[in-house]
Write a protein that binds this DNA or RNA. Structure first.
Lengths: 108, 108
DNA sequence: TTTAAATATTCCTTGACGGGAATATTCTTA
DNA sequence: TAAGAATATTCCCGTCAAGGAATATTTAAA
């Protein structure tokens, strides 16, 4: 069963934006705060949550701390979704079948 | 940009379990409550959140209300993940490339 | 070694969320 | 129409998360 940690972390709009910004590559706290219009302490606090959720990792570089996105939790999410993908594919197949049915009737 | 509603709804363990149980098909409130060991009011309350998040839909059948999983929000999640799938595929490609590199060195 | 920049942490307050218990609502059936 | 089953809602309470402000910590540079 899927753990809710990833969902909780991403349920906060600011943190979701952080993840999206980090998609383009690692950034320092200051850069993240600037891009999102946050005060530095709030940026640090949210990054801490993301860190504890395993969604980011840190690398200290001199004065700065660079945060990089980790894909593992997202891959887990992806795997969790697998079971549900079957659902909508299945439904699409049904629709597809129905459309074929209509079409064959059309020929008559 | 992805909406956080789906994440919020799934961040609650009980609601996540509800979604997973509903994967097998629609269930009434009472059935859901029973399967998850919940009191009926709590089940109704959580189902309301899922309903407002668009993760389930209801169909009234006599005395009962049958809740069915809706895949749209999950499909949106799936689409959102697409951008990140590229990341880990890319990384895998790099590893792959590296292994090929090692192998070609091996031949020397 | 003092100063300054970058980042993390703490304290405080407020608002949202979840559970429990009781009650209201809806629909069926006698 | 009254009674009962299934479900929804309300009220209360405790907890927790998030923002603001201030401060601590770490590291570089003068």
């Amino acid at each position: 069963m899927m753990d809710t940690t990833t969902f909780s972390a991403l349920a906060e709009p600011t943190r979701l934006r952080m993840v999206e910004v980090l998609k383009n590559g690692p950034l320092s706290v200051g850069e993240i705060a600037e891009q999102l219009g946050l005060r530095q302490p709030q940026a640090s606090k949210h990054l801490r949550v993301l860190l504890e959720a395993g969604l980011v990792e840190v690398e200290a570089a001199a004065n700065r701390r660079n945060y990089r996105l980790r894909t593992e939790p997202l891959q887990a999410l992806d795997a969790w979704l697998e079971a549900y993908r079957k659902m909508w594919n299945e439904r699409f197949d049904n629709l597809d079948e129905y459309l074929r049915h209509l079409q064959s009737k059309d020929k008559e």
